[in-house]
Every structure is written in C-alpha cells, then in structure tokens.
C-alpha cells in the first residue's frame, strides 16, 4: 500500500513553452490535418494568437519535466506496472505556442481496490500563464497493478 501521507504532497512548480515546431510535430504524430494546428495564418484566421496548443498537449508538457516520473519512484511504484486510469481537462482559455506556462501539481488522492491489487494515484495539475491567470486544470489518475497481490 502506498503511504497515504503522500496525499497533499506538491511537486516542484515547472515552467514550459509549447514551441511551434513541437506543435507541428505533435500534429503530424496524431495525423492532424486541420491547418489550424500547423499553419500560423490558418491559426490566426481561426482567432488564435499563435498556433493553438491542442486539447491534450498540456499533459505532455507536464510529463516532460526532467523529474516527471520522480513522484512515482518516491512512492515505491514500479513504472512498468503503471497504467493511465482516467484523465480530465478543464479549460479557462486556449493556450498558444510561445507563451510561458507554469505547471503546479499535487497528489490529490490515493486509494486501492481489489485488496490492494490495484492502487490509484490521483494528481491535480494547475496550469497558469505569465500573468498567473488560470489556463487549464488537469486531473490524472494512474492505476498501479501490484503483481505480488495476484491481480
């Protein structure tokens, strides 16, 4: 069982920028052909100040921090046994390429099912902009399958 004292633990705050080239690479990787996500003129014509950061991309910016999986290790979890359980996003506005974004995250909850064979870690991530105004709120639930518990 994961130590419940981890609930409320905050990870270090982290600043990231979604670069245009990276967003074009992401669009390519997911087969996105809407020019709004790769062409600056199309993005501006659609009302964005720059290439928009697509709906799920903020998740990747957060895990890109150098120690992104550190919290998993600190809890004694083997990354190979981790599955993504749930993911949610709530948006205050659409982020765009080039703007500094700050990520703050905390462990919101820990619980288990099936007698500990499945353990759940819930993280909440708040994304704010350079003016400290809210951009998006993410909630990530990971599931840890403990093979020793005979799931």
């Amino acid at each position: 069982m994961i130590d419940r004292s981890f609930i409320g633990r905050e990870t270090s705050s982290f600043e990231a920028v979604a670069e245009r080239g990276r967003l074009r690479f992401f669009a390519h990787a997911i087969g996105e052909q809407d020019p709004v996500y790769s062409d600056l003129d199309a993005a501006r014509a659609a009302g964005h100040g720059d290439l928009p950061v697509p709906p799920t991309f903020l998740f990747g910016l957060d895990v890109e921090r150098p120690d992104s999986f550190a919290y998993v290790g600190e809890m004694g979890i083997d990354l190979r046994h981790v599955l993504h359980g749930e993911q949610s996003f709530a948006y205050h506005r659409v982020a765009v390429a080039g703007e500094p974004l700050r990520f703050r995250s905390r462990i919101a909850d820990l619980f288990e099912k099936k007698g500990g064979a499945l353990q759940f870690v819930v993280r909440e991530i708040a994304v704010t902009d350079g003016d400290d105004a809210p951009v998006a709120d993410l909630r990530t639930t990971i599931v840890v399958r403990d093979p020793r518990a005979g799931a």
């Binding site: 809407d34 709906p55 949610s88 709530a90 506005r93």
Partner: peptide
Amino acid sequence: LTGWAPQQRLRSWSVRF
C-alpha cells in the same frame, strides 16, 4: 472534437481508459 467545434468552445472533458 476540434473537427466538430472550434477548440475555443471546448470547456472540459474527461475520459476513462
């Protein structure tokens, strides 16, 4: 979703894997 509605209109969403 963004093929159906402009991204500015997406307020929130949630999935279970």
